[in-house]
Amino acid sequence: MNYDEFVKYLKQDKMEKNVLLLYGEEVFLKAHSKAELLKKITPAQMPEFNVFEFDGRKYDLKAVDEAIEALPVMSDSKLLTFRNSMIFTISGKDTATKEYKEFWEKRLSDIPEDVFLVFDEEKVDKRSGLYKKFQKQNAFAEFSYLSENKMINWTIGLFRTLGKVISPHDAKYLIEITGEGMMAVKHEAEKVAAFTQGEIQITRADIDAVVVPVIENKVFDMVDAMLSQNAYAALSKLNDLCSLKEDETRILGAISSSVDKILTVKLMTESRLDRTQIASKSKIPPFLVSKYITLSAKYTRENLERLLTMCVDTDRNFKLSQGDKTVLLQRLIADFAG
């Protein structure tokens, strides 16, 4: 299920599924949807005996078994919630152990009808056996980033609830400079609303006065200047980042990531993929895809590949401690754009 399907699912009088997996990049939607779900399925009677919460990868499996098997206390149902159990990942340091995965492989086939299980996960690998079990039963809800148009409309509506008016153009600008989805936009919108006090109309100047763009957005503009052979503008933006005490290694990583994404989008557009396909395959939020498409059209593949190679060389010099890192970043800009 996607978000829209999950909203319809919640409107049913009786929940058809007593085991559900919630995951996805849009944490605001997931948190909101989980809260609405729990309102419907949390036992009203004796919650202290019928609601069990398990957090993280390590919890008492015996306690889980006992909670599932014991009859509800003066209630028609019980609820067990799990947050970041990591049983749906395949590898990596954050994955659950084999013991936990094997436990759930067996346990999930025998859950009483009066027991609700809700898994709230940050990381899910769709290749995992447990995920495929949930997929087969359609017992999951994926909360993906909104499309650009939906995100803009949501932001306009958010400001309306705050007693403000914002144009679609300025809403898009706010979305782009926060770059992290609905939760970040909500946080910044509340700041802008408080800053403007008696003013109704929100302007770009209001946004610039309050909102500090994420480093990825600042670096994106710097990369654009570099690719335009505007070394002065790129160096100016680098100096701004350094004055804010941004870590040089993080700056270089953001440069490399931006260039890589621009190149990836360029190759995808040349292959005639649409925006939805580009967002899915590149892992770029749909509301940011358009600016990557616009920028990728301005520059050649060869130029992007050359900058990416120079970033790799600079990273090597970072690791070999060959000089001051800020100077190395300045040299990268000067050598490429000078």
Rank of each mutant, 00 (worst) to 15 (best):
G253M: 10
A209Q: 09
A44E: 15
A337W: 03
K123T: 08
S77W: 10
Q197H: 07
P47D: 08
D120L: 03
F220P: 02
N217F: 14
Q12E: 15
L37E: 06
I215L: 15
T326H: 12
F28T: 00
T89E: 14
M74R: 10
F287P: 10
S91I: 06
A297R: 15
S228H: 01
V214D: 10
E148S: 06
M222F: 09
E180Y: 13
P72T: 07
L22D: 08
P285I: 03
A234Y: 03
F220E: 11
I207E: 07
W154I: 11
S256H: 04
P43Q: 13
P286M: 08
Q330R: 14
I207T: 09
L308T: 00
I177P: 07
G181H: 04
L108I: 12
V214L: 10
V165H: 12
D55V: 15
L273W: 09
S271C: 04
K126P: 01
T309M: 14
K319G: 02
F318H: 04
P286N: 03
L79M: 11
K30V: 02
G198T: 13
A334M: 14
E105N: 12
A225M: 01
I177C: 01
I175M: 01
T95N: 12
I293E: 12
G253H: 11
F318P: 00
K98R: 12
V185H: 03
Y131A: 03
Q330N: 11
Q277E: 13
K136D: 10
